[in-house]
Amino acid sequence: MNKKESISSIQTALLFLVGITGSSIILIPASVTGAARNGAWISFLMAWLAGFLLLLSILYLQKQHPGLTFMEYSRRMVGKPVATIMAILFLLALFWQEAAIIIEVSGFFKSTMMKNTPSPVINAMFFTMAALTARAGIEVMARMFSILALIMFGCVTAVLLLVSVNFHLEFLLPVMPDGIKPILHGAYIAYGFPYAEVVIFSWILQFVRKDEAQRLGRDMCSAFVINGTTLLFSIVSSIIVLGPLAGDLKYSLYQLARLVFVQEIIERIESVIGLSLIIGSYMKSTIVLFIITRLLSQLSGLSNYRIVIFPTTLICLLLSVTMYANEASFVEDGYVMWPLFNTIAYVVPMLIVLAATWVNGRMRK
């Protein structure tokens, strides 16, 4: 049943685009600017280049092992015991990531738009939508997300264009008032979220139709360029509008939307950014949940991944309401430990399999 599911190269690139853009379009500008200040755009470009190398790596692995999941070709390259250990690390990180996506969007609503709504209620609504969509399958996700992606990017673009009358280019200077260390710190944050997460999308590449496999690399790279352009422009816009406050105000794009004022006709359109965050977080959480269930089904030997969707969703919901007692501890983990954990759980296993694949290919020659 699962093997019959297939999507086009463009649809795969679209899922990749919404997955790495998703909630990061709202969260990354403030977090990176808070660390690197005016040099945030340099930090972002450094992280983006690291993410691009990871993208090229997973595309190479998929080309060498067509039609297989990350776990399947890991078993071939490094053996079942090592592959199982790597899969468990992968799984732990995915569970944390799924819960963290919803914790972040819940925190956004609690601090801005739905202050009196309990967090568990918001979390439960998001997880319910994600579970039902993931259960429908990747083909439904690909068709549905194409429309939602247009809405999300349309809302973000509209806000950035409308707020452009408040641009002050002089706010870009000085670029590195405190030296290179803040720049590297900002790059570390942006690398951990979202670019180290590029590796998890190796789990959806197997669904590309065989007759479109040759176009996959081009479409995925195009999606990555669109992501980079959007996030870079969002960071720069935050700096040249908010100035020194850009790194101190959480949810930069939300703050920009509050500044929009067009002849007393269009103003205070922060709800548009709220809609973008809802859509982006929903799409990303659905993709991550889908990947978790695929990995769980392969680890347990189940032929139908849909069986574990609802139990997995319940676990993620419980994690989202119990993992952190306050926002400070969540922020510390998200911006300090998460990039390191991502590297250990996602990047290192991928690099091991990449090296084994390359050595195996050289030996065959």
Rank of each mutant, 00 (worst) to 15 (best):
E197S: 15
V198C: 13
E170H: 08
H185I: 04
G179W: 01
Y191G: 06
V175T: 15
G192F: 07
V198R: 06
F201T: 04
Y195H: 14
K210G: 15
F207S: 09
A190H: 06
I200L: 15
I204A: 10
L205Y: 10
Y191M: 07
S202V: 14
G179Q: 04
P194H: 05
A196V: 03
F201P: 05
R209N: 01
L172G: 00
F193G: 03
P174S: 10
P194S: 02
A190P: 03
V199N: 12
Q206I: 14
F207W: 04
K181H: 05
H168F: 01
A190E: 01
L169I: 13
E170L: 06
F201I: 08
R209T: 11
L172W: 01
Y191L: 10
H168T: 06
G179E: 04
L172M: 14
F171V: 03
P174E: 15
F171A: 10
Y188E: 04
L169V: 02
V198A: 07
I189D: 12
M176R: 08
I183C: 05
I189W: 09
I180Q: 09
R209Q: 14
Y195N: 11
F193P: 07
K210Y: 12
F201N: 05
V198Y: 11
K181I: 10
I180H: 05
Q206L: 15
L173Y: 13
A190K: 06
F207V: 05
A196G: 07
I183W: 08
F201R: 13
I204E: 14
S202I: 15
F201H: 13
L184A: 12
L172A: 09
Y188W: 13
S202Q: 10
F207L: 00
E197D: 13
F167A: 08
P194E: 14
V208A: 12
P182K: 02
E170Y: 07
A190C: 09
P174D: 12
G179V: 06
P177A: 13
F201G: 05
L172Q: 09
R209Y: 11
Q206C: 15
I180S: 09
E170I: 02
I180P: 07
L172K: 02
V208L: 05
V198L: 03
G186C: 01
F193A: 10
L173D: 03
K181W: 00
Y191R: 07
E197A: 03
P177H: 04
L169D: 03
L172E: 14
L169C: 03
I180V: 15
F201D: 08
P194I: 02
V175N: 05
Y188S: 08
P182W: 08
L205A: 14
K181L: 10
P177Q: 14
I189H: 07
L172I: 12
L205Q: 07
